[in-house]
């Protein structure tokens, strides 16, 4: 039995409850705690999606670093006990919720129709061909994967082909069904740290380096913003 639907419902519900709690609590400290819950739930969802690396980063960066920063500022400004939110006028709140619902409906509509006539659907359709030996399109797909992750054909032949077919087969000998499984296996592994690392340091090297500049700029900006001003000389 596939556990994914159950886990999805569990994590999804947790994330939603956490999110609603974030905007529901009056005390920002509670909101922060609720947000951490949401983040953890989302990390679970990421694992369900096979994105192991992202899930780990989610916990470390969001639930760890960012939330600590939030809590730190709340403590620093001593906002925990003070409720700055006087009740908003009911009509404004109601209007906001109605807007939100319309927005959510549109979002769900998009989600429901996402795989109709889109690129996603096309890829699914194409990979669904069955029977016969490995097709040219599948070979092409394999080559693409090979290039993206900088694997050699030997590595695929020795490490991955045995997982889906007889150990002495090479890629060219696979049947179409076997090839599809092979591709799915390879794609399923893309969330692995090794795979993400390969892509990050080859195809996305330049953007990756640029993020360091962004962080540096943020660093300097923060220092400039909160630096204590020199006490002015009173003459």
């Amino acid at each position: 039995m596939n556990a994914e639907p159950i886990l999805f419902i569990a994590f999804g519900a947790l994330a939603l409850i956490g999110a609603v709690a974030v905007i529901g609590f009056k005390n920002p400290v509670y909101s922060a705690i609720a947000l951490i819950v949401t983040f953890f739930a989302q990390a679970g969802l990421f694992i369900l999606l096979g994105a192991h690396f992202v899930a780990a980063v989610q916990v470390i960066v969001y639930a760890g670093a960012i939330m600590v920063l939030f809590l730190f500022v709340i403590m620093l400004l001593n906002l925990g006990s003070v409720d700055v939110d006087r009740p908003k006028a009911g009509i404004a709140k109601g209007a906001a919720v109605i807007l939100g619902i319309v927005f959510a409906l549109e979002g769900v509509y998009i989600a429901v129709n996402a795989s109709k006539g889109t690129a996603v659907a096309r890829v699914k359709r194409e990979s669904a061909v069955g029977g016969g030996s490995i097709s040219a399109m599948q070979l092409k797909e394999l080559n693409k994967i090979q290039a993206t992750y900088q694997l050699t054909r030997d590595e695929i032949d020795t490490e991955y082909v045995p997982k889906v077919a007889a150990a002495d087969k090479t890629v060219e000998d696979l049947t179409a069904d076997e090839a599809r499984t092979l591709i799915q296996t390879l794609q399923g592994e893309m969330g692995k740290t090794e795979r993400i690392g390969t892509v990050l340091f080859s195809k996305f090297l330049l953007p990756f380096e640029v993020t360091s500049l962004i962080l540096l700029a943020a660093l300097i900006g923060v220092i400039a913003l909160v630096k204590r001003e020199e006490p002015k000389e009173v003459s």
């Binding site: 209007a95 906001a96 807007l99 319309v102 927005f103 549109e106 998009i110």
Partner: peptide, 12 residues
């Protein structure tokens, strides 16, 4: 609020 209304209208 203006921004959200705008997004909703465009999406619609």
């Amino acid at each position: 609020v203006s921004m959200v209304i705008g997004i909703i209208i465009f999406l619609a």
